[in-house]
Design a protein around this nucleic acid. Sequence first.
DNA 1: CGACAATTTCAATGATTGTTGAATCATGAG
DNA 2: CTCATGATTCAACAATCATTGAAATTGTCG
Lengths: 127, 127
Amino acid sequence: MSGAAPAIKPEVMKQLFHPEIEDVLPADVFAALGDPIRLGILVSLADCDEVDKARCGAFTELASPSLLSYHFAKLREAGITRSRAEGTVRFLSIRREEFDRRFPGLLDSVIETARRDPSVPRVKLDV
Amino acid sequence: MSGAAPAIKPEVMKQLFHPEIEDVLPADVFAALGDPIRLGILVSLADCDEVDKARCGAFTELASPSLLSYHFAKLREAGITRSRAEGTVRFLSIRREEFDRRFPGLLDSVIETARRDPSVPRVKLDV
DNA sequence: CGACAATTTCAATGATTGTTGAATCATGAG
DNA sequence: CTCATGATTCAACAATCATTGAAATTGTCG
């Protein structure tokens, strides 16, 4: 709606692509949530969220590094999470404000649903 | 939890399988919601719901009969909808109370999310 | 520099998905 | 009984998915 064109830098773009929150579609969000490992990542983030302090490497109980990377990308491309690189480490966080503005109330009930269910795996993220 | 065993009639079971709501997993629900046609069926049902009065044949604007049948099955197997056969016609409805008991608040925000988004197709179900 | 650690990428795999069109199966009408 | 109708099933297909393990990438530290 605002005139600001994306103006994406292609070199940086190759990795760590984050969609504009306006471009995210409901069906894509739900598809991204349709996997137990990804739900596990989400609730673990939600239950830790000392915002932006969750290292990607803290999720190794859930899957192998390469598979985790795959799932991180799915969540990121669905507009649910943000990945920030800092040195050799990556931090993962929920795009809370943006996402809540785009889909009010949705994330809360999704997280609550996942949190309540024992079929969703969890990771204790150190504070 | 309650002692009442399912006691399912196998002849009727072959088609129209509905899972026990307790057996439905969050990831399966979200996977079922991860498709625009299925979201369209859901919001159309939610916006009509003169409960149990929605014929399957009323959704033909969304897809071909055979594809609709496929999507109906997905929603049904995810515990979201109920399909009732009456003569040569089938009626479709949302498993509201059960689902809300199993996942409180979830369906409301899912439907609201889908309703608000123009990417989700809709069908006007005659009252 | 060179070894190391944290992640991502790549190639390969089998499984599942969404879609199509033809065939099938009931049921109710004539 | 036969025929049309509403809906599901089946076979086929390309596309995408989740998963694996090996290789490449990037930054840190000695």
